[in-house]
Design a binder for these strands. Structure first.
Lengths: 251, 251
DNA sequence: CGCTGCCTTGATCTTCTTCAAAACGTGTGG
DNA sequence: CCACACGTTTTGAAGAAGATCAAGGCAGCG
């Protein structure tokens, strides 16, 4: 336990990431809501998208900004968060390539409800909200696919509410690590490495606690051999035990 | 404050409520996602719906049941909740006439994620999940309207997460009362009466606390003249003060 | 009129937050 | 390549917020 290694995370170039035209088309045709469409339709849609790169830590948009665009994440990781005037931010979601964020609404004067922030170097494809809306209008299959994705997010949000309401901090952190492990995990010698820079602060913002408490819980987990962790990285070394802890609260 | 009146809530018949055919058509054509459709279309859709009545406290479906139907609430109030094996249920939403619940998904073998329970005598219109799905497939305007409603619920869920993460119990209860006041409030001599039977337990399940703590907070609010309350009813008497408390935490 | 279920209140205990200070790691510039 | 500086993490001690356990009171209903 004393030889906590250097960060085992994939190091990424610090350049704002740009994608090749072919890469764009590949990504768009893989996105769940364009998948049902014919290839030539996707090519036409592709022309409506613009490309933007962001640096780690850079804000893509702020909560309250006029919601003019929809984003499709092509490469990198994006945090979705809400601010509190107390300074206690809440991290709602961590997005991976292929997921969308931003404005879905038809109303132009709507504002973003959340802030989107690049967690790593990011390449995102953007489209005008009204353009996206009219695509959905013309392609019911795409609209239903988007509906399914949003419904799934609603389910996930309800699950988070249940956790915040009824589980201890320890259980919430365990559950969050498992969820991140499923989504971002990569098997390595250390264990199931969570492929995203994840600070104690991030974890605290995801689980509704303080960085200090998150740190204490993580230290305990590490002492018990459930995880291996260092500065902004975590790996799960005992999936079963962590699962048991998340669900019952008894180690 | 000593003469806490008898329940000022509208007393409703205890019969499982049934609606007249004309009432059904009226309700369906008023529902946001059928509103854009022509009257004759709605009449055709109406024929796909069945009608069901429920008694107060009766469970409409349980979380985990096969999700075969979509429901449109015609009359009464419905609780949406999640269970915990610890016995601590979480109340996610309180629905009023015109709102929908149940299955949106196309996959037949899906399960309900939540339990739906009648809070008052209820009349609900039900349709097979696949029938509803094919309606959305044929009517993009309806599909987009549903998408907007679900997006709005996702926003609300995120707001709840923010509150649970960053606000005190006192603030959460104040905010919840205000939200309920907006949705179900009715101006009366006592104040803005929340037209639904609302126990301390319900409030606790909405705000992630215990009935005892909810009771203590409500007593404090009453002593400070912010609300008037009795057995399963609440009225807001000082909206501004309650708002201030919800937002800043300082009375 | 007594029963059942909801509400209130008190005392105690646990969990988590807060404040503070020190140790560590990572990338930087010498 | 090494040493420094910054932001992250760890850990401690004290205090607050809320949970839990327990008892008693009140409303509505048969």
């Amino acid at each position: 336990m004393s030889d906590r290694r250097k960060s085992p995370l994939d190091s990424e170039s610090v350049e704002p990431h740009m994608c090749s035209p072919q890469m764009r088309l590949d990504i768009l045709s893989q996105v769940p809501f364009f998948k049902p469409l014919k290839q030539d339709k996707v090519a036409a849609i592709n022309r409506l998208f613009r490309e933007r790169g962001y640096l780690p830590g850079e804000t893509i948009y702020f909560a309250g900004d006029p919601a003019e665009h929809l984003f499709v994440l092509a490469d990198g990781k994006v945090k979705l968060l809400r601010h509190n005037w107390t300074g206690k931010d809440v991290l709602l979601d961590l997005l991976t390539p292929g997921e969308f964020f931003g404005s879905l609404s038809s109303l132009g004067d709507d504002a973003y409800a959340e802030t989107a922030q690049a967690q790593t170097p990011v390449c995102a494809l953007t489209i005008q909200a009204e353009d996206f809306r009219s695509i959905l209008d013309r392609h019911p299959a795409a609209a239903l696919a988007v509906l399914d994705l949003v419904s799934e997010r609603l389910r996930a949000a309800h699950e988070t509410i249940r956790q915040l309401s009824a589980h201890s901090v320890e259980q919430r952190i365990a559950q969050t690590l498992l969820k991140l492990g499923e989504k971002l995990g990569e098997q390595q010698e250390i264990g199931l490495l969570i492929q995203v820079p994840l600070s104690r602060d991030d974890l605290a913002q995801m689980t509704g606690t303080t960085p200090e408490t998150a740190s204490r819980v993580m230290s305990r987990f590490q002492k018990e051999g459930l995880i291996e962790s260092g500065r902004e990285w975590v790996a799960i070394t005992d999936w079963e035990a962590l699962t048991a802890l998340a669900e019952s609260g008894l180690g």
